[in-house]
C-alpha cells in the first residue's frame, strides 16, 4: 500500500495549522514587495542619475541572485551589525525585498504606458511632482498591471517553502519534521504539494478573471 489514508488524515490538521504561517509570510511579504517595489520604481525613474543608476544596480543585483542566499544573508549577516531578527521576520523580509524588485519592473511598465499628455497636462495645471505622481499617474498606472502583480503574488507564495531553510515552522518544515518522526514522507510531502497546487490553480483562475474584468474596463 503506497498511500496510507489513516496517516494522511492524522497529519492533515498539523499541516493545516502550519499553513497559517505560510499564508502569513505570503501576505506580509507581498505587502512589503508592493510598497518597496513602488519606491524602487519611482527611484529608478528619478532624474538624478546617481539615484536611478544605483537603484538599477541594486534591483538587478537582487533579481539575479538566489533568494535562499538572501534569506541566509539577512538571517546570518545582519546580526553582525547588531540587527537580530527572528527567523520568520528575516524570511519574510527577504521574500518581500526579493519580490519588490520584480514588482518594481511591473510598476515601471505601468508608469511608462501612461501617455505623455498626462504629464504635460499636470505640468500645465502647475501640479507639483508629488501630486502628479500620487493623484494622476499612479491611479492610472496600477489597475492595468494588477494581473502581472497577481502572478508575482502566486510566485512569492510558492517560494515560501524556502523559509524552512532557516527553520521557520511553515508547511514544508512541518512536513519534513512529520516525515522524519514517522519515517513516512509520502503523505506529508505529497499533501504539501497538493496544497500548493490547489492554491496556485485557484489564484491563477482569480487572476484570469481580474484580467478579463480590467480589460473590459479599459475598453470602455
Amino acid at each position: 500500500m503506497f498511500w496510507d489514508w489513516e496517516y494522511a488524515f492524522e497529519v492533515l490538521p498539523v499541516l493545516a495549522g502550519a499553513s497559517i504561517i505560510t499564508i502569513q509570510a505570503t501576505v506580509l511579504g507581498f505587502i512589503l514587495a508592493l510598497v518597496l517595489g513602488l519606491i524602487f520604481a519611482i527611484m529608478r525613474m528619478s532624474r538624478n542619475r546617481a539615484i536611478s543608476g544605483a537603484t538599477t544596480a541594486v534591483v538587478e543585483f537582487i533579481r539575479s541572485t538566489p533568494l535562499l542566499i538572501q534569506i541566509f544573508f539577512i538571517y546570518f549577516v545582519l546580526p553582525e551589525f547588531g540587527i537580530v531578527l527572528d527567523a520568520f521576520l528575516a524570511g519574510t523580509l527577504a521574500l518581500g525585498i526579493h519580490y519588490a524588485t520584480y514588482c518594481s519592473e511591473v510598476y515601471r511598465a505601468g508608469i511608462e504606458a501612461i501617455p505623455r499628455g498626462q504629464w504635460e497636462a499636470a505640468t500645465a495645471l502647475n501640479l507639483s511632482p508629488t501630486t502628479t505622481f500620487r493623484d494622476i499617474i499612479i491611479p492610472q498606472a496600477i489597475p492595468p498591471v494588477v494581473p502581472a502583480l497577481g502572478n508575482y503574488l502566486v510566485a512569492l507564495f510558492k517560494e515560501t517553502p524556502l523559509l524552512s531553510a532557516i527553520a521557520v515552522l511553515e508547511l514544508m518544515q512541518t512536513a519534513k519534521i512529520l516525515g522524519s518522526q514517522n519515517f513516512r514522507y509520502i503523505e506529508p510531502i505529497t499533501l504539501v504539494g497538493g496544497f500548493f497546487l490547489i492554491f496556485s490553480l485557484i489564484a491563477s483562475a482569480a487572476n484570469r478573471y481580474a484580467e478579463r474584468r480590467l480589460s473590459t474596463i479599459g475598453k470602455r
Partner: peptide
Amino acid sequence: IEVFRGTSALVQLFWLFFVLPQL
C-alpha cells in the same frame, strides 16, 4: 505543465528526494 508550475520547486525537489525512495 500545471503540476510543475503550480507547486513550488522545493516541494518537487523534496518529493523526488524523500518520497521516491519510499516508493
